[in-house]
């Protein structure tokens, strides 16, 4: 007999309350997680979308990419050591549009590479978000530090750095603007372990992301909220089932006295937990997918099915642990005590 379902059916309100709380917490977790991912993408899509590999910067740069100046001889050595290696530089700056309105961008230049957009001198390729600011292909843009003009060659999707749209420019234009001859970084794709290079410090993709000002602090805060919510939901399960179990000690004792197995009582509790969590997560996942599709462009929200599935799994596991912990008392219940306790 499905005792779990019979109890849920008879005590709809009680389980609806728990389900609603789990629904709200999971929805909030999905929202915060989506924002964390979205902000992360907004902050560093340029780096995150690169293949796995190693970044190198000057060892004296104090782990700050824009203080790095890589010696040309070392750069040449690394560029020729492996296929697809690229040297690149990034600087935050401004572009003036045809109305002389300043637009904040991250100027990126690189040596010939398939991983970065390559343009001719005087050309510029922008992140597509600049289209929303009224900039079109063929428009002429200027920069106070650049003597010439940039002609917009086109747009690329999801290329952001430090919350600013990326602007790919030619290496010669970059050198003129920032009066530097050396590149800041070298990226070696497909490398799991860093190779020894004189005067250079290596960083994995994740380590390099952490050197971006604000990235680490922003992500840590949001992820802390996400995991805090997950832990809270686990505690909620434990507390809710504990309260329910305390109310049912006499009942459980009688059921044990007439011969019901303790494992059957645990199964009843687990079934209820899975049922409530399943429905709550299903609803919040559906709602968040809807939000994902219709959310305004201004909100940096990005939540993949993989992340939803992962968080849902965590919710199930933590709910299971919470319910099981509260169920320890079921194991301890002596039928005799329950009988002496009086009516259920």
């Amino acid at each position: 007999m499905n005792l779990a379902w019979k109890e849920v059916k008879k005590n709809k309100l009680r389980f609806l309350i728990l389900g609603s709380i789990i629904f709200l917490i999971s929805l909030l977790t999905f929202i915060i997680s989506g924002l964390a991912n979205g902000l992360s993408q907004d902050n560093a899509a340029l780096v995150k979308d690169l293949p796995d590999g190693q970044f190198y910067m000057n060892a004296d740069a104090d782990e700050t990419y824009n203080l790095s100046r890589i010696d040309r001889h070392i750069q040449e050595k690394l560029l020729t050591s492996q296929k697809d290696v690229a040297a690149l530089s990034i600087q935050m700056g401004f572009l003036n549009d045809k109305n002389d309105k300043q637009q904040s961008v991250a100027f990126v230049t690189s040596t010939e590479s398939k991983m970065f957009e390559n343009v001719k001198p005087g050309e510029i390729i922008l992140d597509r978000s600049m289209e929303d600011k009224g900039i079109k292909a063929g428009d002429i843009l200027t920069n106070n530090q650049f003597s010439g003009e940039f002609m917009v060659k086109g747009f690329v999707d999801q290329k952001k750095f430090s919350h600013a749209p990326v602007a790919f420019i030619h290496i010669e234009n970059y050198k003129e603007m920032y009066r530097v001859g050396e590149m800041q970084l070298i990226f070696v794709p497909g490398q799991d372990k860093a190779q020894e290079a004189d005067g250079l410090q290596s960083f994995s993709k994740k380590e390099f992301l952490d050197t971006i000002p604000s990235y680490n602090a922003e992500q840590m805060s949001l992820n802390m909220i996400v995991w805090f919510l997950v832990v809270i939901s686990g505690m909620l399960f434990a507390i809710f089932f504990y309260m329910m179990n305390v109310q049912k000690i006499a009942l459980y004792g009688i059921l044990k006295a007439i011969g019901l197995k303790t494992s059957a009582l645990f199964k009843m509790m687990w079934t209820q937990m899975l049922f409530i969590t399943g429905i709550a997560l299903g609803l919040s996942a559906a709602l968040i997918q809807g939000f994902n599709m219709f959310a305004p462009e201004e909100i940096p929200f990005r939540l993949t099915i993989e992340t939803i599935s992962l968080l849902s799994m965590v919710f199930f596991i933590i709910g299971f642990i919470g319910a099981t912990l509260s169920g320890v008392q079921i194991k301890k219940i002596e039928p005799l005590q329950a009988i002496q306790q009086g009516e259920v």
């Binding site: 019979k6 109890e7 059916k9 005590n11 009942l251 009988i339 009086g342």
Partner: peptide, 12 residues
């Protein structure tokens, strides 16, 4: 078993 109280399962 029959006890002083019926101890029936309230949701059945």
């Amino acid at each position: 078993f029959v006890f002083q109280f019926a101890h029936l399962v309230p949701f059945l």
